[in-house]
Each structure stands twice: as structure tokens, then as C-alpha cells.
């Protein structure tokens, strides 16, 4: 099994929940989110990957965007969670916790 390939796929699969959780801390722009993710072990993504994810979340109504002028370059396009996004994130986090606990029970053999 190619571990690197599995890690890449897992990271891509987690992008939605990671981005939504980052935005749950407050509005942010793509560049900032990429930099934050780069600093977190195992979550570093290719910089361009953030934009299709944000576009999809926007189309789904989970995220909205607005522009703010920046002193050091082009205006920043900020993204923030919508109410639907908040709700979806709660459900996703709940599901994630369940998943982790189920996986743990399999690993420890307690829930079988």
C-alpha cells in the first residue's frame, strides 16, 4: 500500500471539515488559511487546492465571501461561515467525533 497516496486522499477528503473549522474561528482569506494549514502537522495542502473547495462550499451556501482592501497588495477576498455552514459544521464535527470513537473501539477491540 502506498502510504503517501492514502495520506493525500485522506487530506483531500478532510478539506471541507478543516476549512469550515478554520472559518469557525472567524473570517479568513484563502492565502491565510493555506498558511495556517501548512503550520499544522499532516494538514499541509497544495496552495491552489483551497480555492475549488471554497468555491464549492460557497455554491452549497455554507460559506460567503466579501472583499476588503489590503495595504500590502490586492484586496483580500475574505470567506466566512453562513448559518447553514455553522449547522453543517456542527453535524460534521459530531459525525467526526463518532467516527474517531468507532475507530478507537475497533483498534482497542472494545466495541466488537
Amino acid at each position: 500500500m502506498n502510504l503517501e497516496n492514502w495520506q493525500t486522499q485522506l487530506r483531500k477528503g478532510l478539506l471541507d471539515i478543516v476549512v469550515l473549522n478554520l472559518l469557525n474561528r472567524g473570517p479568513s482569506h484563502g492565502y491565510e488559511m493555506v498558511q495556517t494549514m501548512k503550520r499544522i502537522d499532516g494538514l499541509a495542502i497544495r496552495e491552489g487546492n483551497i480555492y475549488p473547495v471554497l468555491a464549492r462550499l460557497q455554491t452549497d451556501g455554507l460559506v460567503t465571501s466579501y472583499s476588503e482592501p489590503s495595504t500590502d497588495g490586492p484586496p483580500r477576498k475574505y470567506f466566512k461561515l453562513t448559518e447553514a455552514g455553522q449547522k453543517a459544521l456542527e453535524d460534521m464535527n459530531k459525525h467526526w467525533d463518532q467516527l474517531i470513537s468507532s475507530l478507537e473501539s475497533i483498534r482497542k477491540g472494545t466495541g466488537l
Binding site: K12, L15, I45, R46, E47, G48, N49, Y51, P52, V53, A55, R56, T59, D60
Partner: peptide, 14 residues
């Protein structure tokens, strides 16, 4: 930035 093919992969839903 990553390979262009990944963009299509990531927006492919809906």
C-alpha cells in the same frame, strides 16, 4: 500551487 487536475477533482461535486 499543485497540479491543475486537482482543481477539477475538488469541485466535481454539484
Amino acid at each position: 500551487m499543485g497540479p491543475p487536475s486537482e482543481y477539477a477533482e475538488l469541485v466535481n461535486e454539484d
